[in-house]
Write a protein that binds this DNA or RNA. Structure first.
Length: 298
DNA sequence: AACCTCTGCAACCGCGGGGTG
DNA sequence: GCACCCCGCGGTTGCAGAGGT
């Protein structure tokens, strides 16, 4: 006999089979508890998993480092104005900060491209002159598709512009010309490497043109030495107006003797880059570094 | 006038080099 | 040495306008 205390006051006297059945029930209860916990935890995990997956699907991107949405496509005049104003007053510095500081929905790369190819001061518009065409053809025959190096020899022209011009016009011209007179033949006849004096366009080579004593070989050599032998023209009309407007110490007005032309300024004693960076970064430009002239060379 | 094709050019994209932590 | 960022370059794309049918 054994007694089980059910309460402080009641005592139950149970037989052996009863005890066994109680043990069995208890054991079954434990098993049930185990399975319940097991499956409920599984269920819980499953639930958590589902929730996490849903959250990931729905909101993961918002948990990532937010990627600013950049505008693409053509630039509006307002965007141009913002970019121009910002760079004129602050300089570009780090390009990736430019759109943020200037309040533009563009990426830095796009701003840089826009400035270099379109807004930069001193850019020439319109088709290339025969002289420029000759230079491009000659330099391309010696340098290949090094558009930036070619552009360095053409003041006011961008590499993109020259590249486009080549693909849309000059390439065909060269192909046509080569059908009649291969480059190697021109080379032999001139007794000099292609690029020195050969002309594809039928006009005189640049080196022989009136009023220009520069030899193309010199240009190429200088180009290889990272030196530009050609005069570098810069500061288009709007830019000089801005200089006056901003009162950067420039007082001389410039006139053109040969009919209407853009006002350019000669940059003396200083490198072009120094003066430009002075201007762009807001340093004062002293008068003695500008001399009035139609076209200003360094 | 409507549609299609071509052309020019501005802008994008991907890659490589250089600098920095 | 590695990862990251920025910059510059060259190839490519896409769009708008011109020109042709």
């Amino acid at each position: 006999m054994c007694s089980i205390h059910c309460s402080h006051t009641t005592q139950l006297h149970l037989s052996f089979p009863s005890i066994l059945s109680l043990k069995l029930i208890s054991f079954l209860n434990s098993i049930l508890d185990f399975f319940f916990l097991y499956f409920s935890s599984k269920l819980f995990l499953l639930l958590v998993h589902t929730i996490v997956r849903t959250l990931l699907k729905m909101g993961y991107k918002s948990l990532e480092k937010p990627k600013p949405k950049h505008r693409k496509g053509l630039w509006s005049p307002e965007e141009d104005e913002r970019l121009r104003n910002y760079i004129i007053h602050h300089g570009h510095g780090c390009w990736s900060n430019v759109p943020i500081n200037a309040g533009l929905q563009r990426n830095g790369k796009s701003c840089r491209l826009r400035w270099i190819n379109y807004l930069r001061p001193g850019l020439k518009k319109g088709i290339l002159s025969p002289q420029e065409e000759d230079i491009v053809l000659t330099l391309h025959s010696s340098l290949g598709n090094k558009w930036s190096q070619i552009a360095q020899q053409l003041p006011g022209r961008t590499d993109n512009e020259i590249k486009n011009y080549w693909h849309s016009y000059l390439k065909k011209k060269v192909t046509r010309a080569e059908k009649f007179e291969p480059i190697s033949k021109i080379q032999e006849e001139n007794g000099s490497p292609v690029g020195a004096t050969a002309s594809f366009s039928g006009s005189d080579s640049f080196g022989k043109k009136e009023g220009c004593s520069m030899d193309l070989t010199q240009i190429i050599n200088n180009n290889n030495n990272n030196q530009s032998a050609l005069p570098r023209v810069m500061f288009a009309e709007w830019f000089t107006k801005d200089i006056d407007h901003l009162n950067y110490g420039l007082t001389q007005s410039v006139t053109c003797d040969e009919g209407p032309c853009s006002n350019y300024y000669e940059l003396c004693n200083d490198s072009q880059e120094n003066v430009l960076s002075d201007f762009l970064y807001g340093n004062e430009i002293s008068n003695n570094r500008f001399v009035g002239s139609n076209f200003m060379y360094i």
